[in-house]
Computed example of a mutant assay.
Amino acid sequence: MKLRCAVLDDFQDVALSSADWSGVGDAVDVVSHRRHFPDRDALVEAIGDCEIVVIMRERTPFPAELFARLPRLRLLITTGMRNASVDLEAAARHGVTVCGTASSSEPPVELTWALILGLARHLVRESTALRDGGPWQSTVGMDLHGRRLGLLGLGKIGTKVARIGQAFGMDVAAWSENLTPERAAAEGVGFVPSKEELLETSDVVSVHLVLGDRTRGLLGAPELRRMRPTAYLVNTSRAAIVDQAALADALRGGWIAGAGVDVFDEEPLGPEHPFRTLPNLLGTPHLGYVTRRNYEGYYRDAVEDIRAYLAGEPVRVLTAP
């Protein structure tokens, strides 16, 4: 009898066409679910008979309570090699192996710059006016050349964002708790000794930090008020790094000129969520990693994870720190 495998949150219905699943077809029946299951009971009903589940990033959290309700689950595969929404200790207690996949860092870098450019040149507003017969030119864009790009985090993604900023002729500076002047200098990036100074002196602030105890709520109302009223905030990292209510207040109150946001506490956003209507927020539905090459890599590796698990030699296993 074949094992059952559920692929969750396949919004674009591409999971089964993005990789060759025939290599596990003799042993596994695979079902893809396009709709999100925000209700825990509905999720359990949909996947309760599955031994294998493939999840997309952090769209569907797997806390301890969910593992307890899925006694048949034996293999959980997450796209990427880090997923803060999976309780790895609970998985181990319930005998569930958790595996990951490779993930490219280039797509979130590219989306970061799409948001920066969209904000700086008011692209959505101008494009909408052009299509709707509105005014021909109603905004004045912000020059990037000569302005300061402030990076919260100078890791793999932050470094690539910095190089593009330098190509635009921006003054690129960075801060994080672990960043050293030597590390910043090696990338040709200015070292700023405090978060407060970075916020106060930057024209664009872009977030590229890992979510953890030290970074959760890193930017709240006091920090957002330190930013220039002409500055933009961009977050393609994790929603919880920026206090969402404070960001909404900042946008309504004109503390900052605008924000480009790809990550939200609530995903998908509810129809009445204020972020859907704030005119100075350029929002995208968590598209940072959503590219064809990344999806092909995710699901190719997911098939390999299943094959290796069935052979008794699981690969890319995630364990609790």
Rank of each mutant, 00 (worst) to 15 (best):
L3I: 05
D10P: 14
Q12E: 14
A15R: 04
S17C: 06
S18E: 12
W21F: 14
W21M: 04
G23P: 03
V28I: 13
D29Q: 11
V31L: 13
R34N: 06
D39F: 03
D41F: 08
A42Y: 04
A42E: 15
E45P: 05
D49I: 04
A68E: 15
L70F: 10
L73T: 06
R74V: 00
T78C: 13
M81K: 12
V86K: 05
A90R: 09
V98F: 01
S105L: 07
L111C: 11
L115W: 05
I116F: 01
G118D: 05
G118W: 10
V124I: 12
T128I: 04
D132I: 00
G133T: 13
P135E: 03
W136I: 13
Q137G: 00
V140A: 12
M142K: 07
D143N: 15
H145L: 04
R147N: 11
L152H: 07
G153L: 10
I157L: 15
I164T: 09
F168C: 10
G169T: 09
M170K: 03
W175C: 02
S176Q: 05
S176T: 13
E177G: 14
E187Y: 11
G190D: 08
F191G: 06
K195Q: 14
E197D: 13
L199E: 01
L199C: 09
S202N: 11
H208I: 08
L209M: 03
L211I: 05
T215F: 06
R228F: 01
T230K: 13
A231F: 02
L233E: 04
T236L: 12
R238T: 13
A240K: 13
I241R: 01
L247Y: 06
A250S: 11
L251M: 06
G254L: 08
W255C: 01
I256P: 00
I256D: 01
E267F: 09
P268W: 10
P271I: 09
P271G: 09
E272T: 15
R276Y: 08
H286G: 10
Y289F: 14
R292H: 14
N294F: 08
Y299G: 10
Y299P: 12
A302P: 05
R307N: 00
V317C: 09
L318F: 12
T319Y: 09
